[in-house]
Write a protein that binds this DNA or RNA. Structure first.
Lengths: 143, 143
DNA sequence: ATAATATTGATATTCATTATCATCTAATAG
DNA sequence: CTATTAGATGATAATGAATATCAATATTAT
């Protein structure tokens, strides 16, 4: 999804829910979209703060939640680390290989696995909505 | 893994690391092994407390961590909920279908997916150690 | 412009987990 | 068996991310 499209999804979601457009919201979304990905709420808060020193951290938390709800952001929790957020679209769906030594994230995707997951869910009378696959191990450098 | 085997793994791990056997450790392990599974640290603490009112919650936390280290327990984090622990063996490896409405856990397993995951890791020069697959959706009752 | 109401920022609060530390106890040597 | 010593415990404080509260403010519809 292009940056523009993500913004539209967000603003559409806002108006559909009767929520308002504020410069804080747009600035948080902009900063998030131009971030590398895998950002924490705190990192995003500091990034936005560089442009707008008067932003509050609670506002960043609140809006990250909104962004997750409408599908622009995706929460990922790894171990006991703090929650990270990544751009859900514009990346395509992917899973993660996570190095247990250096913490590196590798994004991967495999259609066969995706399809098998759907079958697995169906076989259990279960309607799949989303999933999370994380494979922990050692990356090229660390092995 | 039988209950006995789990105990051996734990005590072997303790002696290998120069750690000591205490009634607290054994009681926590016993209670954990006879629990249904998917238990939280707090639930386990309360269960042990029924037998030994003088147990401390920090001790339960400490030893759940030890049990995870030696492979008797497995940490699972779901969403923003608190960490749950389950018996790692004696159940066999499995993944989870998680109902987003009622919170029900369904344990599932599929060898094909497991093998594909290994291939996926190898294709990325990655040595897999363990993985976590969670499929969120609606269970039979809630759909 | 006004009214209605959502939003914000500062702050307090929550709550699981971790750290601290004096005391206790298991393991070991003698 | 006793002393030694180093790990373990329990009470408590501390941490830290996420949430709740609330008065002040900003946005939107009329």
């Amino acid at each position: 999804m292009s940056s523009e499209k993500a913004k539209n999804i967000f603003t559409d979601y806002l108006s559909k829910k009767g929520l308002r457009n504020t410069w804080q919201r747009l600035s948080i979304l902009d900063t998030f979209l131009s971030s590398g990905g895998h950002i924490t709420a705190d990192e995003l808060y500091n990034a936005v703060k560089r442009k707008h020193s008067d932003i509050g951290s609670a506002t960043v938390h609140r809006n990250l939640k909104l962004m997750s709800e409408c599908g622009v952001a995706d929460e990922i929790k790894i171990g006991n680390k703090k929650t990270r957020y990544e751009q859900k679209y514009g990346h395509g769906h992917h899973d993660h290989l996570i190095c247990t030594k250096c913490g590196k994230f590798i994004e991967v995707h495999n259609d066969k696995i995706e399809r098998l997951q759907e079958k697995l869910a169906e076989a259990n009378d279960f309607i799949p909505q989303r999933h999370k696959l994380e494979i922990y191990g050692l990356c090229k450098k660390c092995k």
